[in-house]
Design a protein around this nucleic acid. Sequence first.
RNA 1: GGUCGAGUAGCUCAGCAAGGCCAGAGCGUCUGUCUUACAAACAGAGGGUCAAAGGUUCGAAUCCUUUCUCGACCACCA
Length: 902
Amino acid sequence: MDIPKTYDPREAEQRHYARWEEQNCFAPEINRDANAPVFSIVIPPPNVTGSLHMGHALQHTLMDVLARHKRMCGYRTLWLPGMDHAGISTQLVVSRELKKEKLSRHDLGREKFIERVWQWKHESGGQITKQMRREGASVDWSRERFTMDEGLSRAVREAFVRLYDEGMIYRGDRIVNWCPNDQTVLSDLEVEKVPVERGGKLYYLRYPLKTTDGGSRHLTVATTRPETMLGDTAVAVNPADARYLDLIGATLLLPIVNREIPIIADEYVDAEFGTGAVKITPAHDPNDYEMGVRHNLPQVVVIDQFARMTEAAGADFFGLDRYKARELVLAKFEELGLLEKVVDYEFSISKCERCKTVIEPLISTQWFCRMDELRRPALELMASERRPRFTPETPYEKVYTDWLENLRDWTLSRQLWWGHQIPAWHTSDGRVIVARSEAEARAKAGTDELTQDPDVLDTWFSSALWPFSTLGWPDETEDLKTFYPTSVLVTARDIIFLWVSRMVMDGLKFMDGSPFADVFVTGTVLDKHGQRMSKTKGNGVDPLDVFDKYGVDATRLTLASIGSTDTRWNDTQVESYRNFANKIWNAARFSLMNSEGATIGSGFEGEPASWALHDRWILSRLNRAAQSVDSALAAYDFYAAVQTLYHFFWDDFCDWHIELTKRDVTSDEATPERAAARSRLVTVLEQALRLLHPFMPYITEELWQRLPGVDERLLHTAYAGAQPTVMLTAYPQARIDLIDERAEWEMQMVIDLIKRVRNIRSELSLKPSEEINIIVGTTDERLQSLFGAESLGQIKRLTRAASVAVRPSLEGAPRASARAVLGAGVEVAVPLEGLIDFAQERERLNREREKLQKEAAKLEAQLSNPQFAERAPAEKVNETREQLADIAGRIQALSEMQEALV
RNA sequence: GGUCGAGUAGCUCAGCAAGGCCAGAGCGUCUGUCUUACAAACAGAGGGUCAAAGGUUCGAAUCCUUUCUCGACCACCA
């Protein structure tokens, strides 16, 4: 048996994924149990332009842990992968490529350009799917989907037509967020508010009153965008503002353009802000637009789609960039003596989330979706059933609900070429026909003279259908019936609105049920300074580098521990899990080096009571761990699950169980006892590998395959007939009957004794080679036989003691002994003639005693408080009394030990 | 402006929803070990007035209030 001393992750990572994939282990069809429960997850489809970052790695790890766990529990498990066509991003990527050839998309024309995008997709898109294989993600590649697939495109058209027919989608002129750089409209969610850089200014402009008597009164308005005054069609004041009561209804003469505009009254105006008078530009400001609608004000468009001034802005301004126009307007006001003042003012402006260009609000004809009827069922579902159930519940449940409550109409159209073209056709006589296909449109229109609407849909329109469009909707496929609704959605928090809420609304609309029961929101991986990792900052850590350096399994454990917490990334964490992987490797190495004659699943015959203490103990610990992991995963507490597994494997199994069992399994004689001990060891190891598998798929598979005699009989019954693999074994379910409190207590006493003696060895600087003798004083008969017989050999071996004498007390132990207290009534002495410095030893015991005395003082204070006995539960009071008694006993013992040293 | 979260050992984080088991883990630190699975290890040790101040309670890291410091999200005050 030649197993290297160090685990090499790369080898295992290369070996197993391809085999799992070839043998169809990831497909739900691998499950042969007709009555198997179903578990399904759809992946949040990454952008086809994207490459793997830590956020993906985090999500994927959590989803994979859940999927592998459920699969091992016998669920018919589907984790469906796929990608999003990512309209703007992808169009930009390909446009950039074209630019290298000195071409623009317009040179190619729409059709050729789209062909080019598909070509790009096939050649360079979807990097991320290759990277997901490295992660070990157990997704069913046979069901991989892309939002621009024909099937999903059909779903998009179907959904659009249905919503249109029900009057929820409409086309109209409204003020929208326009990106002058990308030349498209954007939804509110694609716009970000950023504090204006280099300090904002608020400009106070005077507008002269039109008077018949030639007077020179004026009204001052405050604005952050002076250039828009060219499009002003009114000035508004609050109807309750006493200062302006007499001016309501009067007329102003708009400077520079000399247009007559009215002074109107509107509740919207805040009298406290600025001068209490607001210039109204209905064509270039969302609020002014609303007010314009209320007051029937004309809309004068002075800025065009390139953010340049239009002809309507006047000859002096025509063609000027908006910011140049601002300077010119200010100069002219200055010249006219109408610029009252300029003050510093901090405010935020809207920018295109993608290209950071300042948004220009423009009136334009777009497609919109009314959200009222869509959101109502979602809000009702949350109110009545609290679905979907968010983890963590705070703040996400509230964030989600608040957003739905304040939702406004969704701008659906985009002026792009890459995406789902809107299924609407225009007739030459100006009618608009919405249909599932051009043929259907022709039939509806009664003419063949149709032009399809050039716009495409917001990428998120197709994403919103993802949980059912990927399963075949609108057809009633088997997959749809089986896997919808999905079990849980795992996602980052930044797309709760963009994606999660819209999936819920569309799921309720088209499938009559929420697309998932639970939503798990992952934390954010931050850099060491607590900053978000981002491409522009260049502070990201590449998961692939981490995989290379520490292995996939170690990285997965780190990510699983992160769960829903925002965490600063640090390599040392991964390093410690790499060490853990190596620990597993070596524990297996030891087991395998001593596995001749061993059979997995045997060695535990007969009644548990007949087994050795350490065997009862490890099974108790194993089942306890299984229980903890199970409840942790049910609560999506990945951190707790990892901690449990880590400490079970390292502390219980490696540090104690392997050590306790070492002599039996390494014995030179091939006795039946040795074979049984070896069988028990590999049996426990095999169970441990199963427990670890969802978190550490590679190392567990690598080692499992090396275990003696692994074959298809070890598989979960649902996977009968599959090739042997740990990923299709049954996940260990806690057997309550094997959780043995008594055995755990007894084992703990043995462990404590060994630790006490080791502590003495260390404090007195005894060489490891130096043999000692141990005297234990206790009147407890069980402990007497435990220390004196049952565990005697183990205690001797693990403390390197020549003898262990068990007596009712330490009385008569040599004066020159190091002593310690295990608990009330259990004491230990190690005779060390010539090695004990009595003063030092007394001091050591004194330190111990002082610690205990502090504790005792606390408890005494508590007990002497009459209120405590009165108000605290009796159980608590008793517990405290017992504690104090125990401590008092130990203090007493320590005092006597000190006296014995005098 | 609104809403919410976080501040616990040198570092990264648990614990807090249902208050009581001397406040936990990993890494780092100190001491000693190549004890035939593992030095990426083993054995042992030290380290925190749980951001600050009040309050509720027999009892608070955990509940309440205020303050300070970070952070996130939402927002139509020009």
